[in-house]
Design a protein around this nucleic acid. Structure first.
Lengths: 130, 130
DNA sequence: AGTATACGAAACCAAAAGGTTGCATGTCAA
DNA sequence: TTGACATGCAACCTTTTGGTTTCGTATACT
């Protein structure tokens, strides 16, 4: 169900600091565009564009109410970020655990945890002329 | 001690899909540039530039070994992403919990959880002409 | 010494990003 | 109906981004 054909994904959407502030603001409360743009030093149109990008990433939802368009945050797409991050958490967890073990055993030598040590090298095509 | 003057932050660094693949690859094993670039359809120089950006964000570390530069992933900066994300987790947690409650109680009405309902409006300067 | 390999730096380019101003349109208030 | 407000859209501009090719230099191999 997750739309993967989107022009703007969540990674790209949150890359911009203004958009992160926008998200923060809209997480606190739903707001129409002009009210939103009052919180930023840029033009309303610029804010509107950012909102569009967030919208395409599914991070905000708009609702027309009379002449205003109210935006609210939509947290679901952050799930993708979360699962992406989850993969990498084990790496710094490992480091933390290693450190913890080190501290607990204090003067003991660090036991190299099992892991890939070999470095990927040439593809094996070195005999070009022979 | 967290460097905040960096030209490239972690959000921007992971925004590019190529760089995310790069991270993935380097999380599996340390690798020199040419070997890395064999995994991508772009030039070695382009890969090198991406590596530079990741490096500036602290997400990879390089080590010169003879004529090659070996890169390895450095997970620590992802901590920032993690903590950023942590703030938003409560939002979808709320939704999940609400859903869970709903499912558990099945045919029961959804009790609106306490939260800001009011919308930020005008700053109060509507009496301009009097 | 001479050649091949690994890499970075520089110059250059097209497209995307982030911003602006101006205009058109829909809606609310007298 | 007339005017103010809220917004979207189009045109335009500048800077950044992601990419290329070419070249220089350090290191390794024989």
């Amino acid at each position: 169900m997750s739309s993967s054909t989107a022009k703007h994904d969540v990674f790209q959407a949150i890359a911009d600091p203004t958009r992160r502030k926008l998200l923060q603001l809209l997480s606190e409360q739903e707001m129409p565009v002009t009210a939103i743009s009052r919180h930023f030093p840029i033009s309303r149109t610029a804010v509107s564009k950012h909102l569009r990008i967030l919208s395409e990433a599914g991070l905000v939802k708009e609702q027309r109410v009379g002449r205003e368009t109210r935006y609210r945050m939509q947290p679901e797409p952050l799930e993708e970020l979360r699962s992406w991050l989850a993969y990498y958490e084990r790496f710094w967890d490992n480091k933390l655990n290693a450190l913890k073990r080190l501290v607990e055993n204090e003067h003991q030598a660090e036991s190299q945890p099992a892991g890939p040590r070999l470095v990927e090298r040439e593809a094996g095509q070195s005999s070009k002329k022979g």
